[in-house]
Design a protein around this nucleic acid. Structure first.
Lengths: 118, 118
DNA sequence: ACAAACCGTGGAGTTAAGTCAATGGTTTTG
DNA sequence: CAAAACCATTGACTTAACTCCACGGTTTGT
């Protein structure tokens, strides 16, 4: 599919897609046409973009995502130890979720206090 | 307490504290001394800074935090409706936690796949 | 008393993650 | 077949959230 369609399906801008691609988070084939040089994306690119949104929500930077996505690629290659990286990131995300939940609780309590007082 | 001590206790830099204060997330008394103009913070500032870290983990911007902290202040003032704001933010944070958990799951599965394959 | 450690202000610089605009091709559609 | 819609590249711009530096005053430890 072409960039506009991908942008619609994944709810991100075309500029963002090109930006991600420049930074190695996504790739496209050069397109079969030969009269143009439009990017051509596989359907799976939608999933990749969704994964990126999830990762960002979890506090990942794009640089970390590049590593993570590379990890997936390399997972059937030999002697590459991404385990330490993954373990560390898992702990970071867990910690972030805990803090987010604590803050969510604060938000809810505040709302309650506001509702009770006026 | 003075800024350096607060920085240590809350694990943020002095520059960050001054930056937050410039942006209305924190306030200090001018200090009793009269021979200097060192900032003086109440012990509660540590808690405020911790709250800020939680809020950031939950995806709040500092601008949103200014509103939220103002909301707390205003909670015993009359006819101010922060409820809509709070409700919206609660939903955003809940959504963000869900996405983070999805991504956490992906991280764990990836780690498992990496452990199983080599 | 004097060096080390601390504090203040002002302003410049940095990084991440986009976003926008200009220019010029290509495809689709009425 | 022309207008509308799409695409590419380049490079400048933006915003948030810091971070650093220079300068000069203050406190504290020895």
């Amino acid at each position: 599919m072409r960039i506009g369609e991908l942008a619609r399906q994944a709810s991100v801008s075309r500029d963002t897609i090109r930006f991600y691609e420049r930074n190695g988070l996504l790739s496209s084939s050069p397109g079969a046409s030969r009269t143009n040089n439009y990017r051509d994306y596989p359907d799976s690119a939608v999933l990749t973009l969704e994964l990126i949104q999830e990762a960002k929500a979890a506090g990942f930077t794009l640089a970390e995502l590049v590593i993570f996505l590379g990890q997936i690629e390399a997972s059937n290659e030999e002697n590459f130890d991404g385990d330490a990286f993954l373990q560390e990131k898992i702990e970071e995300v867990e910690a972030k979720i805990i803090r987010s939940q604590k803050f969510l609780q604060t938000l809810k309590l505040t709302r309650q206090a506001l509702a009770d007082s006026p």
